[in-house]
Each structure stands twice: as structure tokens, then as C-alpha cells.
Design a protein around this nucleic acid. Structure first.
Length: 300
DNA sequence: AACCAGGATCAAC
DNA sequence: GTTGATCATGGT
């Protein structure tokens, strides 16, 4: 194990691949983490409002502290849950070395992306979030998700009894919403019907994380693309960012461009690029995609 | 005012 | 199986 945990304080073994909250939250995989005034981060995970300490500096690069919004440490059980959420059990150093040896571009992208982790996010929340992401931009995606949470999610309170945030809604709650209402109030546009129809499938237990996690990645993707509003790109995002499959390789406009610019792959369909990425980068293709995505946006 | 945003869907070929 | 118009919204 490359970390220990005590009362919400994570201590890492000193190494060059120390977890970077800033990069991890900024690479487009999650939508409910935001920078705090003091350099830390605030976010909602599993129905809890959390505060992370500032990005570890050079002087204390081995510590990460997590608190609730009243400044209290989180309990042990939730600390274990967060260790899974932040993917602290995975050997990023090994994956880093493997990918860096692929080519010079990936080596640079990996170096720039050092510290990015692939979060294991709640399956239903990830599905709905990336349905919203289709043909949309990140600031507006975040606004839509916050509005949906405020409208249909449970309120989260601090020690003083004040509301400090809203959990992402249960499938049963979203499944009962009228699409026209979701469109008007949450401003999700034509995606409203997809969101409700998909939520119904979850509420009826027609699809679940536990049913999918045993399958191979092909069968997994074939099942997930059946969800309304979910195509190949969104399905790959769901598999990657909910912890189902590290070999997923989402191809969007950015990846399409960078595969042209970085690797000279012109005139290829997104489906062809997805296959190319999975074959070329292998079992950690999803991490490679995140490195390239982060690197491309960094230098653009 | 057109164009774009971490695309999906349906019809037409 | 693969391509093209269409989709609602807000920012530039």
C-alpha cells in the first residue's frame, strides 16, 4: 500500500507520482469539485459535502486532509470509501512508466499530467452527468448538474444545521420527473427525455454497476450504449470514470484533434480512433487518454 | 449573427 | 455499416 489513513488525513509514501487534486479535478472527468478560496477544494461525494486541504506543496507533499463543511474530520469508514473514490490503491507509478515508454508525445503528456488520478465515481451520477455532457461545454454541464441536485437531491447540512450543498439525486427521484419540467428548470435542453428514460431503467434495476462489473469491456460497452442518450463516446466515459474499465478510450472532438496533431492520424472516424487508442495504449488506455486530453488543453 | 461545446439519434444511402 | 441534418442552451 502506498498510503495510510487516519481520521481523514491521508499520508502518502514520498514519490514523484503524488496525487494532484488540482489536475485530477480539472481534467474533465468530474463536475462537482471546485477550487476553494484558500487554495483547497470543495466537492460533493456520496451525499457528503467535503473540503480538501490545499494542493500539497513541496514541503508537505505527502499529506492530504479531508474535512466536512464544519471543519470536522471524516470518519474511518468514509475515509476508506474515499480512498477507493480517489483510486489510492492503484499503482500510478507503474502505469506512468508503461505509458511513458510508448512514444515521446505520451512521455511529455504523462509528465505534464503527473498526479492525475482516475476517480471511481458513483455509477448513476456518472451516467447522467455524461448524458448531459453530449454536445455541451464544461461550465454549462456543471451548472446543469448543480441545478438537478438542488431540485431533486437531498440537502446536506453542517453542524449548525445550515444547508451546505445537495446530494446528486437518486434514480427513483429523477425517474419521476416530467421531462418538460426538467428542461424548464434544469435547462438541460433536449437531453431531458434521455435523463428521465435512463433514470427509469436504473430505478427499475434494469441496469446496475454490480451487473456490469463482472463483464468484459466489450459486453460492458454494448450494454451501456443501450441507455437513452448514451453513444460510444459517453459509454467510454462512463466505464472509465466510474471505475468499470481502465482500458476505455473516449474519443471526442479534442481527442480527435489531438490524434491528428500528435500522431498524424487524419481522416479516421471516431470509432476507428477508439479502436486505435485501445489497441495502442492497452490496458491503461483510459489513463493515456486523460494524459493526452489534459496535455492538449494545457498547451492550447 | 454565426459558431461552438468532452455527441446522440434517426433517416437515408 | 457508414454518413448528414437535427437537436436545446448559453457563451463568444
Amino acid at each position: 500500500m502506498n498510503y495510510s489513513i487516519d481520521g481523514g488525513i491521508f499520508r502518502f509514501n514520498a514519490n514523484k507520482n503524488i496525487f494532484s487534486p488540482a489536475k485530477t479535478f480539472d481534467c474533465g472527468q468530474c463536475f462537482r469539485w471546485n477550487p476553494a478560496e484558500d487554495g483547497g477544494f470543495k466537492g460533493i461525494v456520496a451525499g457528503r459535502a467535503l473540503k480538501l486541504c490545499a494542493e500539497p506543496s513541496a514541503s508537505n507533499s505527502d499529506v492530504l486532509a479531508v474535512y466536512d463543511m464544519s471543519g470536522r474530520r471524516i470518519d474511518e469508514a468514509f475515509g476508506d470509501h474515499l480512498a477507493g473514490y480517489f483510486d489510492f490503491g492503484f499503482d500510478y507509478a507503474e502505469a506512468f512508466e508503461l505509458l511513458s515508454s510508448k512514444d515521446d508525445i505520451m512521455e511529455k503528456a504523462a509528465e505534464a499530467s503527473r498526479g492525475i488520478h482516475i476517480l471511481k465515481q458513483d455509477f448513476f451520477e456518472t451516467v447522467i452527468s455524461f448524458i448531459i455532457s453530449a454536445n455541451n461545454n464544461i461550465p454549462r454541464i456543471k451548472k446543469c448538474i448543480e441545478r438537478i441536485s438542488e431540485l431533486y437531491g437531498k440537502a446536506i447540512y453542517d453542524a449548525a444545521g445550515d444547508i451546505v450543498g445537495y446530494a446528486f439525486p437518486e434514480a427513483s427521484a429523477l425517474s419521476a420527473v416530467e421531462p418538460s419540467e426538467l428542461c424548464e428548470k434544469a435547462r438541460v435542453g433536449y437531453r431531458a427525455e434521455y435523463i428521465v428514460r435512463t433514470s427509469v431503467l436504473f430505478a427499475e434495476n434494469r441496469v446496475s454497476y454490480s451487473k456490469l462489473c463482472g463483464e468484459d469491456s466489450r459486453a460492458m460497452q454494448d450494454e451501456i450504449v443501450k441507455l437513452p442518450g448514451v453513444g460510444p463516446k459517453v459509454a467510454n466515459c462512463i466505464m472509465l470514470f466510474s471505475g468499470l474499465c481502465r482500458g476505455a478510450f473516449p474519443v471526442d472532438v479534442w481527442v480527435e484533434r489531438l490524434m491528428q496533431d500528435f500522431y498524424g492520424l487524419e481522416g479516421m472516424s471516431r470509432q476507428a480512433l477508439e479502436k486505435y487508442g485501445k489497441d495502442y495504449f492497452g490496458e491503461y488506455a483510459g489513463l493515456a487518454q486523460q494524459f493526452l486530453f489534459y496535455y492538449k488543453r494545457l498547451i492550447s
